[in-house]
């Protein structure tokens, strides 16, 4: 119990807001990792980040109107994902620009809504909350809806798993097998919207990219099979999120008066995991190339 007491500050396991944070954060981490693997494979990291940022416009609008934040974040992200897929841009440069322009417009809207919020005084510090998230202030009432949405996103990805993989290899190959590539893209876009709005609410709009891309990039480095990459990404995302929550809770004891932000710890843990993965992959690659050069050098002597 002594060691446990050192790791878990008193009250961690019995604290209501902490429970909510663990549940919603865990859900966001799992969905972020799964969707993120496909997002990175499809080369849509920028789009993923842009959706998160654009969803913050919805978040700030719901602050203004007093709506459930989930509705605002999700509605805006789904709308943006729909527009991106509807525009149907195959050319990589054009997609990059379309994403950028939409991001700019979405952030403009965020600025406007936050301005209204500050003028009407309906929410002070709304900017900070919307953009940087606030894990410990998530209302417990949101948990069932958040977890249900996480489940929906996972179900969508599971349903289109194979066509999604094949179209990441080549859209032509997927189409030749009768897959409707645009439909698959749209389904992935909406799963992405679900994932980013969940994490935008927890770690904040501009940090949700970390949960989406970080664990996925690490998982992709470590494994040569899609299933294992997914499993590793989920593991890294979950550990980083729960570890971050724990550290943030503990940090109230380090600096008396206020704790350190949860998102800071989560991102730091994700990034450390990524660096370790990159390092491991490099070492392994070097091992392979050494073995290729000295086929007999397997330590027989």
């Amino acid at each position: 119990m002594g060691v446990l007491g050192l790791i878990f500050a008193p009250g961690f396991l019995s604290n209501g807001p902490v429970h909510t944070a663990l549940l919603v954060g865990g859900g966001a981490a799992v969905v972020g990792a799964v969707v993120g693997v496909f997002t990175v494979m499809r080369g849509q990291s920028f789009a993923g980040h842009a959706l998160a940022d654009v969803s913050s416009a919805g978040g700030s609008a719901s602050f203004l109107l007093g709506l459930n934040p989930l509705v605002g974040f999700l509605g805006m992200a789904a709308l943006a994902a729909g527009v991106m897929e509807w525009a149907d841009v195959r050319d990589a440069r054009e997609r990059d620009l379309l994403t950028g322009v939409m991001l700019g417009a979405g952030l403009g809207l965020t600025a406007l809504f936050l301005y209204f919020a500050s003028v009407t005084g309906s929410a002070s510090g709304a900017a900070i909350t919307v953009l940087f998230g606030s894990m410990f202030t998530i209302p417990a009432s949101i948990v069932p809806a958040a977890l249900a949405l996480a489940g929906v996103a996972l179900a969508v990805i599971a349903a289109i798993y194979r066509p999604l993989l094949l179209s990441a290899v080549s859209e032509d190959l997927a189409q030749a097998q009768g897959t409707r590539v645009r439909l698959i893209g749209l389904a992935h876009g909406w799963a992405l919207a679900l994932a980013v709005s969940l994490s935008a609410m927890t770690v904040g709009a501009i940090l949700s990219t970390a949960l989406l891309i970080g664990p996925a990039a690490a998982g992709l480095r470590l494994a040569d099979r899609p299933g294992r990459s997914l499993a590793l990404a989920v593991l890294i995302g979950l550990l980083a999120t729960w570890g971050g929550i724990l550290l943030a809770y503990d940090s109230y004891d380090w600096t008396p008066g206020h704790g350190w932000p949860v998102s800071f710890f989560i991102v730091v843990l994700v990034f450390i995991a990524y660096l370790l993965a990159a390092l491991l992959a490099r070492v392994r690659a070097r091992g392979v190339s050494l073995r290729a050069v000295h086929p007999s050098g397997c330590g027989q002597d």
Binding site: S45, L207, T209, G214, A217, P261, V267, F271
Partner: peptide, 14 residues
């Protein structure tokens, strides 16, 4: 690019 963004913003939050 995304990874750098995450790190920088985490520091910003802190």
């Amino acid at each position: 690019t995304a990874l750098w963004l995450a790190v920088a913003l985490a520091l910003g939050t802190l």
